[in-house]
Nucleic acid binder design. Structure first.
Length: 689
DNA sequence: CCATCTACTTAGAAGCCCGATT
DNA sequence: AATCGGGCTTCTAAGTAGATGG
């Protein structure tokens, strides 16, 4: 096979694969001094046995990482494709080793039967036994229709572990087979024809390599197959998808989220993920487990295939599942965000955060006290809680050597924290998605002292900062303080608490969501000023914590802002008129009836309204909703607000705010969000978080 | 215990659509 | 008409957290 020729010529992967493996693992498991807590009465600290384990499990392997490196790494040709992957030298880390083993033993492993509640464990139903001819397909989509919108949030739900009673669906959609395009690879100026499989992978590679890699060995000319010219029209495709889009859960038609099986591709890890570039193989029906009601018809697998297995586990929410070959992770098919199931758990999440509001004062008192605890474990725990609470750090589960080196609170290493007397701390580490968290801040004096202690002596920069703490110990403790409390609730709580909607930007900054700045930002300062004004108006107490909010942007006076916005009104009127004329012109041309004048008048009236409220704002420092929208959009350019908006801020806060000030919902939530938050839309204007 | 497995939320990137602009 | 760019959707990686089992 011609592709093997290129194996060691390595035009594709050479450069990068070295990058990938450079950080050479060192397996010294330096058992560091662990100072035995002098006092360990610890009624609570039964989990104290941690004291006897070597300090650092995880040894740092790689130098800090730039995204750019990762990008390049992404270009690596999947080695697994060309040769059996020789796997990394044995490591101290058992996790890694066994995962590697697993990877070598390919898809043989059957997806395991979820062994949840005994009651739900059912004998496997083999796919073929329920093979039925087509017809009934699509039934799911139509059957459930017309039962109206189910307002689940008005129902009282018990907290039982059963997620549903009946469930029907049509399974999952597989990507189309690979269609060879026949475009040869050009290597050393020679055309090399690849067999279909090799060609497919080469094509994955070309797709990744496309773009910013100037001197890439794969010439654009060799880049094959524009994605058009596919078989099947757009309409046909939609028709095929249709039956997968919905399921029938407890008799209601619910939208399914990711009903498509992930197509084969090169694994695209974020940051310096050691497995970036490996081949993610095509998933066969035989690897897929279907979860479905036990009285429901099992969907037909694609012709000539059978499902891996079929379960009827109603304690879980997934409809299908398979195991992905690169990392051995399980992939699930869930319902869409707007479904009642998701809505319910979303609401529970915010209720929990709201609950925290009631006891957070106590909790803070408690950990402040514990900052001076005699037990090292408790002291570390308290310090971690402080950081999580104050700086929205994530919990920080341990990670393996076969993953990108990123950390959260519990997994911080000494090197991630710099201390400057008397109480300044500088954080610098890669967090989730390898996004850099950098922050300099003043902390509580005792926190500072503690951090100093945790960094002490025999510890090296690569050692764990909180060597006596892990996420499960932390969460166990939190449970005791409030049922259901875990580290991540603090993010929700703090975001929601901060979130008079205008505080959105603050939240996003706090949670360190970033987005690249886009160009064309003329009036940035003005927007900033507007936002700050509003923020302070809506939450005057922010001034204490963020004095910079009170600083004026140079040259941006209130009246300047006012005339600026009034000018936009004039412009918008002009625009509206023009568009109206243009539209009518078109309609006339097509022989259709023209738009009524009232249409235009409506729009103009809206602009008048806006103008009025600008004037009002000038008097009252209140901004009208359209402007707010504008400001938000601009702020969005620098901070990924959407994330906090979607995940952290209790939507009822925004809904209530809108109602209170007569702002329409769609200024705040787009269609998808309104659907997702349907449960929140009915609160009153005086609802409080 | 502790590592691994499972299930679910959170997240940024890529893709797509559509209207404005050249 | 072609291109640009913003907003939304889709995709799937990367977290959290609790259960499980050796």
């Amino acid at each position: 096979m011609s592709s093997s020729d290129s194996d060691d010529g390595v035009p594709l992967s050479a450069r990068v694969s070295t990058d990938i493996n450079n950080g050479k693992p060192n397996d010294d498991d330096v058992p560091l001094s662990r100072r035995r807590p002098a006092v360990s009465s610890g009624a609570s600290d039964s989990s104290d046995s941690e004291s006897d384990q070597p300090l650092s499990k995880k040894v740092k392997v790689e130098t800090p990482v730039k995204k750019a490196v990762a990008k390049r790494a992404a270009a690596a040709m999947p080695k697994s494709n060309t040769k059996p992957k020789p796997k990394p030298e044995p490591k101290a880390n058992g996790k890694t080793r066994s995962r590697v083993l697993k990877r070598r033993r390919p898809e043989v492993s059957k997806p395991k039967q979820p062994a949840k509640s005994v009651a739900n464990r059912k004998p496997l139903i083999k796919a073929e036994s329920s093979m039925v001819e087509s017809s009934a397909d699509g039934s799911v989509a139509s059957e459930g229709e017309g039962e109206g919108d189910y307002k689940w949030w008005l129902d009282e739900k018990d907290g039982s572990s059963e997620k549903w009673h009946t469930l029907e669906h049509n399974g999952v959609m597989f990507p189309p087979d690979y269609v060879p395009h026949g475009v040869p690879l050009i290597y050393r100026k020679k055309e090399i024809r690849l067999v279909s499989e090799a060609e497919e992978v080469a094509t994955f590679f070309a797709a990744v390599v496309d773009g910013d890699h100037g001197n890439n060995p794969v010439q654009p000319s060799a880049r094959p197959c524009p994605r058009k010219k596919r078989s099947g029209s757009k309409l046909e495709k939609q028709a095929i998808e249709e039956k997968f889009k919905f399921c029938l859960m407890d008799g209601r038609r619910e939208k399914v989220g990711n009903f498509r099986i992930e197509p084969p591709d090169l694994f695209r890890g974020r940051g310096a993920h050691p497995k970036t570039g490996m081949l993610k193989k095509r998933v066969l029906p035989e690897q897929v487990t279907i979860n479905i009601g036990k009285d429901a018809k099992v969907p037909d697998p694609p012709a000539g295939h059978r499902w891996g297995s079929v379960t009827h586990d109603n304690t879980v929410t997934w409809l299908a599942m398979w195991k992905e070959n690169v990392n051995g992770n399980i992939k699930y098919v869930f319902l869409a965000a707007g479904s009642s199931l998701k809505g319910q758990s979303d609401m529970r999440k915010f209720e929990k955060a709201r609950n925290l509001k009631g006891c957070v004062a106590d909790i803070r008192r408690q950990y402040t006290k514990d900052l001076r605890s005699e037990t090292m474990a408790a002291r570390q725990r308290a310090t971690a809680m402080y950081l999580i609470d104050r700086y929205a750090l994530r919990a920080g589960n341990e990670k393996g050597d076969d993953e990108a080196d990123t950390v959260g609170c519990c997994s911080l290493r000494v090197e991630h924290v710099q201390l400057f007397p008397p109480r300044t701390v500088h954080f610098d580490f890669l967090g989730k998605d390898s996004i850099r968290y950098q922050r300099t801040t003043e902390v509580d004096q005792q926190v500072w002292k503690n951090l100093k202690i945790f960094q002490k002596k025999p510890k090296t920069p690569e050692d764990m900062l909180f060597d006596r703490l892990n996420t499960s110990a932390l969460n166990k403790h939190l449970q005791k303080l409030m049922p259901g409390l875990t580290a991540k609730v603090f993010r929700t709580y703090n975001a929601s608490f901060l979130a008079y909607n205008r505080a959105n930007r603050e939240v996003a900054v706090l949670c360190n969501h970033q987005r690249s700045v886009s160009k064309g930002f003329e009036t940035q300062m003005a927007k900033r000023q507007l936002l700050k004004d509003h923020l302070l108006w809506v939450a005057p107490d922010l001034k204490k914590k963020h004095p910079e909010l009170a600083e004026k942007e140079p040259g941006v006076t209130k009246s300047w802002i006012k005339s600026h916005w009034l000018a936009t009104c004039e412009l918008d009127r002009e625009k509206a008129r023009k568009k109206f004329e243009r539209d009518n012109e078109k309609l006339k041309g097509a022989g259709e009836p023209e738009l009524p004048q009232s249409k235009l008048d409506e729009q103009l009236a809206a602009i008048d309204e806006r103008e009025k409220s600008i004037n009002r704002w000038h008097l009252t420092a209140r901004i009208n909703n359209i402007e707010i929208d504008k400001i938000e959009k601009d702020e969005n350019k620098t901070t990924a607000l959407s994330t906090s908006k979607i995940n952290y801020i209790d939507p009822r806060i925004s809904v209530a705010w809108c109602k209170k000030y007569g702002v329409s919902q769609d200024k705040i939530f787009n269609k998808a969000l309104r659907e997702k938050f349907n449960w929140a839309m009915e609160v009153d204007g005086d609802w409080t978080f």
